[in-house]
Nucleic acid binder design. Structure first.
Length: 590
RNA sequence: GGAGCCGUAGUUCAGUUUGGUUAGAACGCCUGACUGUCACUCAGGAGGUCGCGAGUUCGAGUCUCGUCGGUUCCGCCA
């Protein structure tokens, strides 16, 4: 098809182009018909330029008149200075006076108007994603994503990494997340799984001596979704041989540094701070603390100070092995209404109520629980928090883990209520020394927290053989997360490369030799042929991009996202298949 | 699997509290007028399975139950 091809994009013409004859190709974003003159905003990926059509040119005028929104046109003419410029537009000082308009394609009336401040719901935007993507905002998210691919590739190439593609069709392992399964036609009744991560492959690449592996890869997990969780997502997956945790930290923060520097123009301070899991839990009530929150708002354990008080709620909790702890909110006038809503909130978390102490300007304190607390205890509490007039303490008591995590939630809630986030910068940190195991109360067994190949810290190796539950739970691992703004950016670990340790770990999680062999036999066998010490990491790529784009919703950074029920609104997957296809696969729907 | 919120014109919403005439608004769409707009303006018009299904009622967008979809959170996500 012949048409006048563009000489320029819709985002680049300026006063210096005045007088030139140009051609633009793009979509009709807006049309303002004033009778004798028609203004068209022509849009492409690069911007918007105003096309002006004068009634003196009858042919051009008539085609301009017939244009609808989202028609694809080619407009040619002379660039001229506008009589009144539009400071809101990058190209607002010029316009193209059209002497030719070719309609390259028409458009049906769109289900929603393509405009930057889009009004349509997410569902509709995802169904007609190709219209949504015409918006600069979403397109620039994809451009950001593309730019970061490049930064990542360049960084790891510079550091001698080998990018290896690992299989998408792999062996299903029942550990971890639920697998997406793919039936085998040739081997009826057998299935591949889509990778939850290339974990086993990258470890085997270390056995192979590849030494430094990286891959930007798709991963698949058949679990329930969230705003920051899609059934398929992208990781920056890496693994290194002959390394310690510190080596992995340096390599991983290096790529984050480059990304922030090149994509955002922000220089991060390295090395990133490191916080142990225990400190994170005890101070922030979460393993992914958001350090952007201004003010103190840290958790303080006051169990020691209130021990022996007459307040039954505290003593009951402490006597049954629990704790009392709280957080301090400063410089906020905490009203009755606020306390009521916070109380309602902690009740949803399973607490009977929320304790609070308000410190007044006249150096008195108000709280319904003061009458149960001696002056000495009151002073101790005040001291624990270093409380001043204007501060309010919120206190919970009960089982330790529950109190801490609930105070962690409360901390976020308060920060949100009172706008305490410092949005001016991103706050990174490493969280390390995670517990190797946790205890599954339902199944009455230990489970590996990260995965079964995570190396216990050296000083805990002897605990692996203990029969005591607390000894097992106390084991800390060379396992770490990178956290940014309260969101887990990625996680990794140093892996077990010695069969004797591996065997003990399998023992703890109740995996017999036989079962281990069946599930991970190929990996364990590989390890018998000289596995080097190795460790690695995997970044959640979508979350990195979301943070760079200033959103928490990773759907905004994915070209064709799925809904929370794992449906793709645009192509309508998943969908039924032909009986014939099922038959070939030897499958029957029940 | 559990809980909350939402579902009304092509779109975004109001109307649901307290059931009652012909279900409204804005944007978009169609027709017409208009030579400097950029949220153009002005005049006129079309457009509805109130998500779906039962039930209560003389009468349901409105109340009840169920169901489907979207979304947020918990569980889940080594």
């Amino acid at each position: 098809m012949q048409f006048t091809q563009r000489t320029n994009t819709c985002g680049e013409l300026s006063l210096s182009d005045v007088g030139k004859t140009v051609a633009l190709n793009g979509w009709v974003a807006d049309k303002r018909d004033l009778g004798g003159v028609i203004f068209i905003n022509l849009r492409d990926r690069y911007g918007v330029t105003q096309i002006t059509v004068n009634s003196e040119n009858k042919g051009v005028y008539d085609s301009a008149k017939s244009l609808g929104l989202e028609y694809v046109i080619s407009a040619s003419g002379k660039v001229q200075r506008r009589t009144s410029s539009n400071p809101k537009m990058k190209t607002g000082e010029i316009e193209v006076l059209a002497d030719k308009i070719e309609i390259l394609n028409t458009s049906e009336v769109t289900p929603f108007v393509v405009e930057e401040e889009v009004k349509a719901s997410e569902e509709l935007r995802f169904k007609y994603r190709y219209l949504d993507l015409r918006r600069r905002k979403i397109a620039s998210n994809l451009e950001m994503r593309s730019r970061v691919y490049g930064i990542v590739h360049r960084y790891f190439e510079r550091h001698g990494f080998v990018e290896v593609e690992t299989p998408i069709l792999m062996k299903s392992t029942p550990e971890g997340a639920r697998d997406y399964l793919v039936p085998s036609r040739i081997h009826k009744g057998e299935f591949y799984a889509l990778p939850q991560s290339p974990q086993t492959y990258k470890q085997i690449l270390m056995v192979a001596g590849l030494d430094r592996y990286v891959q930007i890869c798709k991963c698949f997990r058949d679990e329930d979704l969230r705003a920051d969780r899609q059934p398929e997502f992208t990781q920056i997956d890496l693994e290194m041989s002959f390394v310690t945790e510190a080596d992995v930290f340096r390599m991983c923060e290096g790529v984050i540094y480059d990304i922030w520097k090149e994509a955002k123009g922000v220089g991060l301070k390295l090395p990133l701070p490191v916080m142990s899991y225990d400190e994170a839990m005890e101070t922030y009530g979460t393993d992914k603390p958001d350090l952007r929150i201004k003010g103190w708002l840290k958790i303080v354990n006051i169990t020691g100070s209130v021990k022996g008080s007459e307040f039954k709620v505290f003593t009951d909790a402490i006597n049954s092995g629990g704790i009392a702890a709280g957080i301090k909110l400063s410089s906020v006038d905490v009203t009755r209404k606020i306390i009521d809503s916070l109380t309602e909130y902690v009740k949803q978390l399973g607490f009977g109520g929320l304790g609070y102490i308000k410190y007044n300007a006249d150096d008195t304190a108000s709280s319904p629980m003061l009458k149960f607390l001696s002056e000495e205890i009151q002073n101790k509490i005040k001291n624990d928090f270093n409380s001043q007039a204007g501060d309010t303490l919120f206190i919970l008591s009960g089982e330790k883990a529950k109190v801490l995590s609930s105070l962690g939630s409360l901390r976020l809630k308060l920060a949100e209520m009172f706008n305490l986030f410092d949005e001016s910068k991103d706050e990174f940190l490493w969280v390390n020394d995670f517990p190797l195991f946790s205890y599954n109360e339902e199944e009455k067994c230990f489970v590996a927290n990260h995965h079964a190949f995570t190396m216990p810290k050296e000083q805990y190796l002897k605990n692996l053989e203990s029969k005591n539950k607390d000894d097992i739970l106390s084991i800390r691992a060379d396992c770490y997360d990178m956290v940014c703004n309260g969101s887990e950016f990625g996680s990794g670990s140093i892996r077990i490369h010695r069969p004797d340790i591996q065997k003990k770990v399998f023992n703890v999680i109740g995996l017999t030799d036989e079962e281990a062999k069946q599930k991970f036999g190929f990996l364990l066998e590989a390890f018998t042929y000289g596995a080097p010490p190795h460790g690695g990491f995997a970044f959640g790529f979508d979350r990195i991009i979301a943070t760079l784009c200033g959103t928490r919703d990773i759907r905004e950074t994915i070209a064709f996202p799925k809904t929370t029920s794992a449906v793709s609104p645009m192509d309508g997957s998943p969908s039924p298949v032909d009986e014939k296809q099922l038959k070939e696969l030897g499958l029957k729907i029940t």
